[in-house]
């Protein structure tokens, strides 16, 4: 049962990542692209966690935590650049 659930989760997150990539390519504005990147990092973090369950190891946890932190900082910096045209004031 767990194997099928894991396979389904891999499948669903891969499709989600493809949809996000499409939005990243298509997105009419810069804000859409930033939003797509934001969603991409959250989805790939979940993919890493599922890979950790699949291999039965906790080695991927630190990578996921770092992705979460740097992704957030990147989104905030990009949004601030859109807002002010400058990041460090």
């Amino acid at each position: 049962m767990l194997i099928y659930a894991l396979q389904y989760a891999f499948f669903a997150f891969s499709i989600a990542l493809l949809l996000n990539l499409w939005r990243l390519y298509e997105g009419p504005d810069l804000a859409d692209r930033i939003l797509a990147l934001d969603t991409i990092y959250i989805n790939s973090l979940a993919l890493l966690i599922i890979l950790g369950i699949w291999h039965g190891t906790q080695l991927y946890f630190e990578a996921a935590l770092l992705i979460a932190m740097f992704g957030f900082i990147g989104t905030v910096a990009a949004a601030k650049f859109l807002l002010r045209g400058d990041i460090i004031e």
Binding site: A16, L17, L19, T39, N43, A46
Partner: peptide, 11 residues
């Protein structure tokens, strides 16, 4: 996984 997929479909 379903909710994440639905969120990306919405995006």
């Amino acid at each position: 996984a379903t909710f994440a997929l639905i969120g990306s479909v919405g995006l």
